[in-house]
Design a protein around this nucleic acid. Structure first.
Lengths: 137, 137
DNA sequence: GAATACTCTATTAAACCGATAGGAATTAAA
DNA sequence: TTTAATTCCTATCGGTTTAATAGAGTATTC
């Protein structure tokens, strides 16, 4: 299941991407427009800023804005920041690899074999999509 | 993340599938061979029996066994039983569809658009694999 | 009838998730 | 210079899920 954090984060990003101008948009506006709990959204936008997707401006007239072009923001990176590993098991994760406790030999493991395929096919989807692709015309 | 339930279930199924004879295999043997908590595995095998993948025999010499050929067992069905929906959001699920509370229009939703693609690509992987494909030669 | 092994229900501990609270820091405008 | 608006940060909470365990119950074989 996709966490609400990721879901809300993606929605907020696309909302920002669909703005005609790159000017600060307030949390409250995004929350209202996307039906998201404002306080929860706060924490999400904060991590998106700390991880380099958003810029922010404090104080009156402040808000959040994209600091890259939507076409340059790959979904792989967004998902990894918000949701964590793309792989469904750590033993097939590219960025968060961990060996299984059980499982003496990965190459003979059915789960490993299957989840490798899943990882690759999901990864391809994410790699083929930027934020720009998600904005509906 | 894949739950341990699904992981263990898949391992148990492939272990049973790799048996030369379709004779009952005891829970304890599977648990030992795959490094799984026996009690936990018990409940998993029980649901696999109730959902038509396994047969069982009680008493001495009893155990669990496959009741279909490994080549006939699609991963889609196994995953749905053990893990639940394949889709990452209910609004793109084929078998467990639910509308989102937020989100006035699915067709304009970025998350929906993306997760549709993910669902399709994952589904293709599961559809192209049977239990037989997961057994290492 | 005794041993074996599946069946079922209940409980637990830990982890995670979504949401909330409250105040500190910063900025713009009056 | 004061006030209002807004992000920033930390802490916490209730609920749910997960993985595992315990133990009694039931069926079968030898």
């Amino acid at each position: 299941m996709l966490s609400k954090k990721t879901k809300y984060g993606l929605k907020a990003l696309t909302y920002l991407a669909s703005q005609s101008k790159r000017e600060p948009v307030q949390i409250s506006e995004i929350a209202r427009h996307e039906n998201i709990s404002q306080k929860f959204l706060e924490s999400i936008l904060l991590t998106l800023r700390k991880t380099g997707f958003l810029g922010s401006k404090k104080g009156k007239g402040g808000g959040y804005y994209l600091i890259k072009e939507p076409g340059e923001i790959l979904l792989t990176t967004v998902i990894r920041v918000l949701e964590g590993p793309i792989a469904m098991v750590p033993c097939v994760s590219l960025n968060f690899y961990e060996k299984c406790d059980d499982c003496p030999d990965e190459n003979k493991c059915a789960v490993h074999k299957l989840m490798l395929q899943v990882r690759d096919s999901v990864l391809e989807v994410y790699r083929n999509n930027t934020l720009a692709d998600l904005i509906s015309e």
